[in-house]
Design a protein around this nucleic acid. Structure first.
Length: 606
RNA sequence: GCCUGGAUAGUUUAGUGGCAAAACAAACCCUUGGUAAGGGUUAGAGCGCGGGUUCGAUUCCCGCUCCAGGCUCCA
């Protein structure tokens, strides 16, 4: 989740540097902010011992984080809270803010350690302390509310309960977060709830099962997936496609092992900085080996295998490689977050003067890919260092890398947001963020500039002046990982893949068993043309076969019966009946013309 | 890993402290059909795993595994 854009809105006074200012808050945000106060008021009424922490509006609603002490809250309690909220709101004619002194504030919230901590910070930042009151509920708050709560806060609903660490830090106490949403009208609220239900229908996990694309068998292990034949087909098409596109762009392809000596990752720095993501070493012939969490060191070996000249650069080494990372059980999600990740990886070794150009060409390639897959709802995030975490390399190198990326982005006028703390440990990076059906944001493509690994692996090239110089490495995976990307594609297309990606492109439906052999001959012809076609021949009615093919989201159905059989020539009908999964009936069409059209459709990625 | 829920035929779901139910899918039979489910018959789970309470547990309790939504983290 992206810290800077999603939850960084107004949050009861805690984090104004990232927050939306009061003046910039939209009406909906104000409404939801007031609803969050209302929720807190209801909580305190029903659970007087509870300590309320923070309650901001968010993208689709609001939440409030609450410390309930020993009391356990479950979703069954939401109903009661909602009833209480509706009771309380009647008395909230207005919501009034006022400035208070530090001392007053500390007295007001004397029994609430969370508010006291917030007050400490406000005081530390030398800002004014404000509180907002409506009815007998008063909260530490920077403001941003509707004018007449009792009239305006009507259409709300509490949605779910979750745990959330205080201040987002896992070393802190876990609070209970209650999520809700609020809208200005009943209609909008209902529409939103309906949308959530609709979104569940395009959930890649449901579609993956219904369409037979992949399995996540408990027997194999959590986070480990199997691509079943249909899903494997989609993956293979994408792999073939990117292989071709990369070749066009001057990439060379390699294969590297899934294991390597531990010392390799000690050199790269992963062992020091990335260890908690790596699986425990295994002993082979008295030597410790690791399963690779990334392929970079392997590709460094390729670069280092012989002396390089400035004329050799840029050297672009690509590999669609599966890497293995330890992800916490709680964060695994379908195929969007797994423990083996197949990256459309490559490392570009270039001279410093080539970095900007290479970066831009990777970024353009990335944009081209997203266009081919018809993904337009995405944004870019520039990940920079935060002050707190561990990083390799000197300040100078970092500044230089950041400077180069920003320069490249500015040159292309690329829209992006900046996010501190989202850098790789060896350099700044640009990520592409795509939303899933539920609006959750996922990092897909990534381009990372790296001044560190060339240093650690002592990579060199001989420059024009016959002096040894250090190349720069650009790590890039424009799709991110095939697992995540295909998961997102499943949701993006709601399982109805465009023809070029459909695991099955055509279903041939014989009207009765008498036409089975003709259907098979037609199928054989299509298969010979490299079209993925199947015969549905289970003895049912035509209607049933159409239903089956439609539910499997097969783009085209060819219907073959007596009328078509009359047009047989060279064992194949010259006229077929054609319909689509959307229900469009083309009636009778010329078979060979259809095949030609289909092939050109596939070639145009449609 | 943490918080809150959940786990019943291949799938979707019902249900109960006393022999576990249905639909779809499957197999077989009848039907041989023209644009989203023709009809019938049969088989299929002992209720995620392990303990406990009980005369008796799928149902109640405890632990574990896995799943979902969040948090943290990330491609």
């Amino acid at each position: 989740m992206d810290k800077a854009t999603v939850f960084g809105t107004v949050d009861g006074g805690s984090n104004p540097s990232k927050g939306t200012s009061m003046a910039r808050m939209t009406y909906l945000e104000k409404l939801r902010h007031t609803a969050a106060h209302l929720l807190a008021a209801a909580v305190l009424k029903l659970y007087p011992q509870a300590k309320i922490a923070i309650g901001p509006p968010i993208e689709n609603g609001f939440y409030y984080d609450i410390d309930f002490g020993e009391t356990k809250i479950s979703e069954a309690d939401l109903q009661k809270l909602e009833v209480e909220m509706r009771k309380i709101i009647l008395s909230w004619k207005k919501i009034e803010g006022k400035k208070v002194s530090e001392k007053e504030a500390r007295t007001l919230f004397a029994d609430n350690p969370y508010k006291l901590e917030l007050i400490d910070e406000i005081v530390h930042r030398k800002e004014k302390i404000t509180v907002y009151q409506s009815g007998d509920f008063i909260d530490l708050c920077r403001g941003g509310h509707v004018d007449q709560p009792c009239k305006e806060v009507k259409h709300f609903k509490l949605l779910k309960i979750a745990g959330a660490y205080w201040r987002g830090d896992k070393n802190n106490k876990m609070l209970t977060r209650i999520y809700g949403t609020a809208f200005a009208s009943k209609k909008e609220l209902e529409h939103y709830l309906w949308q959530i239900e609709e979104a569940k229908k395009r959930d890649h996990r449901k579609l993956g099962k219904d369409l037979g694309l992949f399995l996540i068998p408990e027997e194999i292990g959590t986070g480990l997936i199997i691509w079943t034949p249909k899903g494997a087909t989609i993956r293979r098409i994408i792999e073939d496609f990117i292989l071709k596109e990369q070749t066009k762009r001057g990439y060379l392809h390699a294969y590297t092992p899934h294991l390597g000596k531990k010392s390799l990752w000690q050199i790269s720095g992963h062992w020091d900085l990335y260890r908690e993501k790596m699986y425990s070493p295994m002993k082979i012939d008295d030597e410790e080996y690791l399963i690779k969490p990334m392929s970079c060191p392997m590709h460094m070996m390729i670069y280092r295998s012989k002396p390089r000249s400035y004329r050799d650069l840029p050297l672009r080494i690509a590999e669609t490689a599966t890497v293995y990372r330890y992800e916490q059980t709680g964060e695994l999600t379908g195929i969007l977050r797994v423990r083996h990740i197949t990256q459309d990886d490559a490392h570009i070794f270039c001279r410093e003067d080539q970095v900007v150009e290479e970066f831009l060409s990777v970024f353009n390639y990335l944009k081209y890919l997203l266009k081919i897959f018809k993904i337009d709802d995405y944004y870019s995030r520039l990940g920079l260092r935060s002050k707190h975490e561990k990083y390799l390399g000197s300040d100078d190198l970092w500044k230089k890398a950041e400077f180069e990326i920003v320069k490249a982005l500015k040159k292309e006028n690329v829209p992006y947001i900046t996010s501190e703390g989202d850098a790789a440990f060896y350099g700044p990076k640009l990520d592409v963020i795509i939303k899933d059906s539920l609006g959750r944001k996922w990092q897909a493509g990534t381009i990372q500039i790296d001044f560190m690994l060339p240093e650690r692996f002592n990579l060199e090239y001989i420059d024009r002046d016959n002096k040894k110089k250090r190349p720069v490495v650009i790590h890039r995976a424009p799709l991110g990982s095939l697992e995540r990307f295909i998961g997102l594609l499943i949701e993006h297309y709601a399982g109805a893949f465009p023809v070029w990606l459909s695991p099955v492109q055509i279903a041939i439906l014989p009207i009765s068993e008498r036409f089975t052999s003709l259907a098979r001959a037609t199928n054989a012809y299509l298969v010979s043309k490299k079209i993925r076609s199947v015969v549905i021949d289970d003895g049912g009615t035509l209607q049933k076969k159409i239903r089956q093919a439609t539910l499997q989201k097969i783009p085209y159905m060819i219907i073959i019966g007596a009328k078509e059989a009359e047009t047989i020539k060279n064992e194949v009908p010259e006229i077929i009946s054609l319909r689509t999964r959307e229900g469009k009936d083309f009636g009778q069409v010329k078979f060979y013309e259809f095949v030609d059209r289909l092939i050109s459709q596939i070639e145009s990625f449609l």
